[in-house]
Design a binder for these strands. Structure first.
Length: 509
RNA sequence: GUCCCCAUCGUCUAGUGGCCCAGGACGUCGCCCUUUCACGGCGAAAACACGGGUUCGAGUCCCGUUGGGGACGCCA
């Protein structure tokens, strides 16, 4: 953990000589703070009345994991805001984490957002006037900006963590004073510079950090409104300082509340606690219009109280300035109710049949299911029961059956390790799944047969069913992992502490 | 721990100083409909976190407390 702070480092400018970051910065001092206080959130700043420039918003996902409902939620707000003002909605890929970014994730994210109907005007796939829209394709521009900052003395080199002569470039932040943080959803925010560390701008591998890349791109792509999660409020001073140092006018910032887990603490939505993958919702049989409606419902309701509305209506009527700033719980129960309404009210039986064909009852899926079921069929009538789990969201789980005499916590660990192994797979093929699971079985010292028994039950809900690996592939990665997770939970789960230990052991292996 | 944010039924919300002994929806419970289960209909329980102010009047404004969340990475 070296290299973190820099407070008191010789390379800093003396505090007094440092330019104040923002003309709107307020002076330090407790008395001053109170007097200058703006009205609270109830009296929010009115939205800009005379937009001097075109409204341009963006969603900037990082391709480091499965497409996330949080990304869809952010995308919806950005999309809606831009559309209702006749502006443009941009999709930009923030793949500046070389270790974790994968092109497969990017592809999946684009596919999911398209599935939801949140079409972008500019993006890596459709191009646009500010191409390229993938940050790894614009590395030169960040380096150039960082070096300019270096020359101006606004940034400095940090050799702390680099290998050889490699260095990172950090931004020099003031050590005293207080900066006002303009936010369209909360009036009167501010923060002491003393609590802001010098952020890394350019990593020693030559890639920019989020701080640099988002500022450079938002400016160059002429983003007018940055609508992002409130988790970014703490780093707003860094971003504002960058805009100031670069002589650029910052966009308007809207820090929207985070989606929460449906647990006691309402922590930030995480896959630990509830399904977060958009692929999962698609595979479980949720309709894109219901999911979008649900996400919109979390921040806006019609005067009539009717909670079902189309994307078009949401775009036309929702008011970003008046959304609730308290984070909403992502309640899958209510989502399911809404989805049911769409199924009942918007389709006739013919329409439902078409929906089903598009979902999983297509020839290809049926043929693959047939290949898995055929050896076990005596009559065509066996097909239904044998393959029911392919056309279902949840399967029945019996903890006693899952553990089958073994220690429940041990089996839960197997399921966790299996989930992790499958998570890392680039190609979700039968051979890859087989190899991954055999690896896990070996690592826990159990033969593949007994190891996979609980997995059969988790996947199919039955001990007599289709072959495991082929079933997993047909179900898809997202649904497969969800079933393993649900089975693990049914067995009592694996403690956090134990997970940490397993993870450590796994990374050394 | 430090800094920042937030606070109406279990959950999503309406409420922008009098229309609120707080309205709607999900969930829960009861009844009705019905060959089952759903759907649908009707009804019930269920909230302004607490304490101080300001005001003729506070869920609504201010302060504090408590609670919760977020950030504190060469992740985003």
């Amino acid at each position: 953990m070296g290299g973190r702070t820099i407070r008191g480092c010789a390379s800093r400018l003396p505090a007094g000589r440092h330019p104040v970051a923002d003309p709107r910065a307020v002076r330090a001092g407790p008395a001053r703070r109170r007097v200058g206080r703006l009205p609270s959130a109830r009296h929010r700043l009115a939205p800009v009345l005379e937009p001097r420039r075109m409204t341009r918003t963006r969603i900037a996902p990082s391709p480091t994991g499965d497409p996330h409902v949080g990304t869809a939620y952010q995308a919806l707000l950005n999309y809606g805001f831009a559309r209702q003002r006749g502006g443009a909605f941009i999709l930009r890929i923030e793949d500046t984490d070389q270790a974790r970014s994968k092109r497969a994730f990017e592809t999946a994210i684009l596919r999911s957002l398209r599935w939801l109907g949140l079409a972008w005007d500019e993006g890596p796939d459709v191009g646009g006037p500010f191409a390229p829209y993938r940050q790894s394709d614009r590395l030169d521009s960040y380096r150039e900006v960082a070096e300019g900052l270096l020359r101006d003395g606004r940034a400095y080199r940090d050799y702390a963590d680099g290998e050889g002569g490699a260095f990172a470039i950090r931004l020099r932040t003031p050590t005293s004073g207080r900066i006002a943080l303009p936010d369209r959803l909360r009036a009167g925010l501010s923060k002491d510079w003393e609590s802001v560390d010098d952020p890394v701008l350019l990593k020693s591998d030559g890639f920019p950090t989020y701080h640099l890349a988002n500022v450079v791109d938002d400016h160059r792509m002429e983003i007018s409104d940055v609508i992002r999660g409130e988790e970014w409020i703490a780093s707003l001073p860094k971003h504002l300082l960058l805009y100031e140092a670069l002589g650029w006018e910052p966009p308007a910032f809207w820090h929207v509340p985070l989606l929460r887990n449906n647990d006691r603490n309402r922590s930030k939505l995480s896959k630990r606690r509830s399904p977060t993958s958009l692929d999962f919702y698609r595979d479980a049989g949720f309709l894109p219009e219901a999911l979008v409606n649900f996400l919109g419902m979390l921040v806006w309701t019609r005067a009539s109280g009717e909670e079902k509305f189309s994307l078009e209506e949401f775009v036309a009527r929702f008011d970003l300035a008046s959304i609730s700033v308290a984070g909403a719980v992502f309640d899958t129960g209510k989502l399911a109710w809404l989805n049911g309404r769409y199924l009942r009210e918007d389709y006739d039986p013919v329409g439902i049949a078409a929906l089903l064909r598009r979902w999983r009852y297509d020839d290809r899926t049926l043929e693959q299911a047939a290949a898995l079921a055929q050896p076990r069929m005596k009559t065509l009538g066996d097909f239904g029961p044998l393959t029911a789990h392919f056309f279902a969201d949840e399967t029945p789980l019996d903890p006693a059956l899952l553990a089958r005499g073994r220690d429940a916590s041990e089996v839960a660990e197997w399921l966790l390790l299996a989930e992790w192994a499958l998570e890392g797979l680039d190609d979700f093929t039968e051979a890859a799944v087989h190899a991954a699971l055999r690896g896990v079985a070996e690592s826990v010292g159990v033969k593949l047969g007994p190891f996979t028994r609980p997995l059969y039950l988790a996947i199919s809900g039955s001990a007599a069913s289709t072959p495991l690996f082929g079933s997993m592939v047909l179900l898809g990665s997202s649904m497969t992992r969800m079933r393993l997770r649900r089975a693990r939970a049914a067995l009592g789960g694996v403690s956090r502490k134990r997970q940490k230990k397993l993870r450590a052991r796994r990374s050394t292996a």
